[in-house]
Amino acid sequence: MDNEENKSMPKNPADKAFVVFSYAFSIFMALLGVLPFIMLISGSFTSEAYIINHGYSFFPGEFSLEAYKGIFRNSAKVIDAYEITVFTTAIGILVTLIFTSMTSYVIYRRDFPWRNKLAYFLFFTTLFSGGLTPYYMLMMKLGMKNNIAALIVPHMLSVFNILIVRNFMNGLPYEIVEAAKIDGANDFQIYTTIIMPLIKPVLATIALFVGLELWNQWYQCMLFVSDSKLFTLQYYLYNMLNNATAMKELMSGANVDTSSIDIPQESTKLAMTMIAAGPVLLLYPFVQKYFVKSITVGSVKG
C-alpha cells in the first residue's frame, strides 16, 4: 500500500460529487474516531470548577494542570499499576512469541507425522470450551488468586496466533528446511537459525496485538486480583471511576460532609484516563501502519 499513487480527480460533475461525498463521509467517520479523545484531553486540562459549572467540552474552558498535579502528588499507586502493567506486558509478549513460534514451527514441519493431529488438538479448544466457571475454579486451585502469573498466563498462548504464524511459514520455500537438514542441522537449530529470522515480520505484528491486549487488560485482574498492589493500569482506572460513582450515589441520599472523603474529582478522573491510555495514544501514530499491514499480509482467516 506504500507505493500507492494519488488518484486523479474525475471530470464528470456527478463523479466529482461522489468524490466530494467520499471525502465528507470519511472526514465525518474520522472525526467520530478522535473527538471523544479530544474531549478527554481537553477535560483533563480544565479546572474542576469550570467542569462543575459548564460540564465537559471540546476545548479547555479554563486551562489548569491541577488534575495532573494532584495525581502526581499522590502517585504511589499509579506507579505501582504502571510497573505491573509494563512488567506483565513485556513478559507476556516475550513468552507468547517463544511459545507461538515454536509450536507453529512443529506443525509447519511436513515430515512431522503428527502435525495434523496436533493442529486439531490445539484448534479444537477454539470450538468448544468448558466455560468460565471450571476455568475460574482451576485457576484458583492453581494458586492464581493475587498472583501476578494470573495476569500473564491467560495471554501466553493463542491458537489463533499459532495458525497465523504457521500460515506465514507455509509461504516460505520448504527447501530451506530440507537443505539445512542435509547440512546436518538439528530440528531446534533449524528453528533458531533459519526460521526465526524469516518470520520476524509476522512475530512483530503478533507482538503488537498481544502487547495491546496485555496493556489494555483488566478482566483477568478483576477475576483473580484483589490486592491493589497488583492492579493493572486499566483495572486501577476502572476502580477509581466506579468507586467515585458508587460513593456519590451513597452520599446523595445521606446528609454527609463529603469534603473529608477522598472522592476523585471530575478532572482527576479524566486525567487518570489519559494517563492509563497515554502510551497507546503516543505510540499509536507510529505503529498503526504495522497493524494495518498485519491484517492484510497475515492472511488472517476472519
Binding site: 471523544p36 479523545f37 483488566w218 486499566q234 476502572y238 471511576l241 491510555a277
Partner: peptide, 10 residues
C-alpha cells in the same frame, strides 16, 4: 486501540 475501561469512561 483503546481499552473498554477508557471507552466506558468516555
Amino acid at each position: 486501540f483503546i481499552s473498554w475501561v477508557v471507552v466506558g469512561a468516555f
